[in-house]
Design a protein around this nucleic acid. Sequence first.
DNA 1: TTTGTATTTAGCTAAATAGCTAAACATCAT
DNA 2: ATGATGTTTAGCTATTTAGCTAAATACAAA
Lengths: 102, 102
Amino acid sequence: MSKVYKALADPTRRKVLQLLRERDMNAGELAEHFDFAKPTLSRHFAVLQEADLIQGTKLGNQIIYRLNVSVLEEALLGMLEMFKISGSSEQAMAQDGNGRAL
Amino acid sequence: MSKVYKALADPTRRKVLQLLRERDMNAGELAEHFDFAKPTLSRHFAVLQEADLIQGTKLGNQIIYRLNVSVLEEALLGMLEMFKISGSSEQAMAQDGNGRAL
DNA sequence: TTTGTATTTAGCTAAATAGCTAAACATCAT
DNA sequence: ATGATGTTTAGCTATTTAGCTAAATACAAA
């Protein structure tokens, strides 16, 4: 699961996720949004796939990448949980005098 | 701001944040929770400080570390925003047929 | 002022990372 | 079969990172 955090630590990969949030795209389309060489981006896609954040499907000539929304969601909400920050729960967050959740 | 993501990518540093969520601690106390050499941890504290996630205050002999709750909160909620995942907003998330937020 | 305690800085090594180019692979079109 | 297109793999380099030990710094206590 730590792979997810590592994957999210890179700005290029975060941008890839943002792009895929809007619609599925193939590697080439994604690459158009960056100034890096194709193999560099290919590696980024692989990292995201290893973290299960995206999923690639071969379609003829190309590979369509799709965002794995649930995994991303769970990762981020899990992070909120980990630090006991409100976010996922409806009830107002109880706090002590130092701004810490109880 | 990307320093925050990098800082969060390391499991040791995440554990430090979790420990500090409960109470302020000095470097030595924190170090007791890990098997690494002191200088290694000192470096981790520095990374967290550079990301403004924690703040160290010299108190006589020692340095008391304190979690910067607001920065951590904003970082995580900002991440949810970035990917347009519910979390911070009250209204239920609208979704299309593919599980994507609209 | 000397000794002890807490922490960091300096300097090293090994491993991981992000970038590149060139080459390979797979599929489509001719 | 040949060539064109889309994508990855192989292999390289430079940078960053996490770990270590030893030494330096800062303060407290005696």
